[in-house]
Design a protein around this nucleic acid. Structure first.
Lengths: 173, 173
DNA sequence: TTTATTTTACCGAACGTTTGGTAATTTAAA
DNA sequence: TTTAAATTACCAAACGTTCGGTAAAATAAA
């Protein structure tokens, strides 16, 4: 996952992937007979499950007060992207050349993200359309700030965007 | 440029690039002796000049009323990204594998974008810090919405973000 | 409990293909 | 006739993938 996220699909050679796994590249075909494609699909399916466990479940767990839920989800997101140092794998795998392979999985994962924040917004009392809009904005802001953080080599943009998202739910006028 | 933007640096083969140029791949070395690297650098230097002509100059041209300037810049941005169908080349070339080659150019181009919108905000009467903040937000929103538009296969996100940017300058409370 | 069999995990070497890049040659322009 | 531009032909290296095979572990049979 770290290799694919940093280098993209075409930029990740099997040697890179094998090296990161501590194996020879031929050994990857034991667990992934489908080769590089299967590795990429597996990785972003893992991301989907990560979002389910660390964002969706957290934001919709009504045994915990809303503020704590949001804080927890935000901290998980911060950890996922290592405070803005990491790229988003949705992005690095979404080039036209690799999109046909993992496009559907990316679609599902983004939907799940939006679903999670929408449900949270509704539980806070926002209208459905307002909740959806805020949820989309959260995804857009994260993605955009990661790119700008990388381009300008300054993770402040990412960290600020986390604060903006939090504030959009807690500090509303 | 269209090839690199769509497929990224590693995903663009010299055959792809030559084909798009209507030449044999060896012919590319006549104009670009530095090979693929030089092509990539040239392309994003072109983007830098595009931003200078179509965003910076437009937004800072004080012979034209501010509202028209903003509309013109927004329309140029819409055209650049083909209403959200195109990826941003800052993004597709910014993978770790290609970053060392074009990282500096991307940095400069992003700065120019922010500089343009900051100058525009100041000319509208915003404080410098507020103007900078708005300028950064415009870049983040564009980048983020392009990714979400592609991931969810729906350009509405991009088009809506253009409206949001416009509104953040004209429709402020 | 020992022996035989199968399965799992992994590796080195090689496969055919594509890669970015070079040299020599032909075509077009000045 | 010289210079510029594009092409054909080619190369070493790297690519993703496959292959034959080994060592260790798990399972079944004796």
């Amino acid at each position: 996952m770290s290799v694919l996220r940093a280098r993209g699909f075409e930029g990740s050679s099997l040697n890179d992937l094998a090296c990161a796994a501590g194996l020879q590249k031929a050994s990857l075909y034991h667990r992934f007979p489908g080769g590089k494609n299967e590795i990429a699909v597996t990785v972003i399916q893992y991301v989907h499950s990560w979002i389910h466990d660390n964002i969706y479940k957290v934001l919709t767990d009504d045994t915990i007060p809303a503020g704590k839920r949001l804080n927890k989800a935000i901290e998980n997101i911060r950890a996922l992207y290592q405070d803005g140092e990491n790229s988003c794998i949705f992005n690095t795998l979404a080039l036209d050349s690799g999109l046909s392979i993992v496009g559907d999985e990316i679609n599902k994962s983004m939907h799940l993200w939006i679903e999670a924040f929408t449900a949270f917004g509704i539980s806070l009392g926002f209208s459905k359309s307002k909740a959806i809009s805020k949820a989309c904005d959260s995804l857009i802001t994260i993605q955009g700030s990661l790119i700008v953080s990388k381009g300008l080599k300054n993770t402040e943009f990412f960290r600020k965007s986390l604060a903006t998202i939090k504030n959009s739910y807690t500090g509303e006028k």
